[in-house]
Design a protein around this nucleic acid. Structure first.
Lengths: 124, 124
DNA sequence: GCTTCTGTTATATTATATGTATAACAGAAG
DNA sequence: CTTCTGTTATACATATAATATAACAGAAGC
């Protein structure tokens, strides 16, 4: 599995790693019960520090994407709190939609983008 | 004008202020040519430091939402680089959609949210 | 001219976040 | 008994965030 980490980005490394893993889960390259590489292995693969990976895994745990097992490592396990998920998503969307609206992006253009992105994810 | 700043949030104060101002522009509470309160006035109103407001204004300038004039202060002036706006919006949406997809939020639910948010902004 | 308002710049301090580096620990697996 | 987990601790360097004073230059109003 290849991880796209941009060392020149202003996004924190652990944040980038979190996003990459979430992308992979959404694309079903990982499924419920699959284990992520160990923190040391992942750190070696990417060329970053073990603790940076550990932080990413713990953020993912806190956000309900994985469960961390001392024996097996980080296991994909989506904890769906739908109400919470809706509220969080809405808050993030509000910021994006406001910016888009200021820049004359239409509702339809956003809809189209979402459809395009969703197509990559098992699509219905 | 009332600004909703959460001092307990983990979002930086200047980031919150930027978002609030963008919300206001999208809701047309500010229009092209309107001036924002001076950095000192705004800082006083909110109860934060002048430099924090100054940083917010400069971020908004860099992102193309205002022009800062030494005489008049910060003036709303949307600089629309549509290609750039599309690319940025897409990148931000990709992260949100991946998370939403992992949590079984449907495409339709996202569409609905976007429509609801857009309704607040001058409607169609 | 003088005062007052702009944003701007400079410097300093404090706190927090980020990332790396070593090292050691306890528990499970082989 | 060795090797693999995640975990914890400590230390260090750097960057970011936020505040605090202070001063400056330009424009506006009187």
């Amino acid at each position: 599995m290849y991880w796209e980490i941009d060392f020149n980005s202003d996004e924190a490394l652990y944040t980038q790693l979190c996003n990459q893993i979430i992308f992979a889960i959404a694309a079903e390259q990982f499924r419920e019960g699959d284990t992520l590489p160990s923190v040391r292995q992942m750190a070696d693969d990417i060329g970053i520090n073990m603790h940076t990976v550990n932080k990413a895994y713990n953020v993912l745990r806190q956000e309900g994407f994985v469960k961390v097992d001392r024996r097996k490592g980080a296991v994909i396990a989506i904890d769906i709190d739908k109400l919470n998920a809706l509220a969080e998503t809405r808050h993030e969307l509000e910021i994006i939609v406001a910016r888009a609206s200021c820049r004359n992006l239409s509702r339809e253009e956003l809809h189209r983008m979402i459809d395009e992105i969703y197509l990559q994810y098992g699509g219905e």
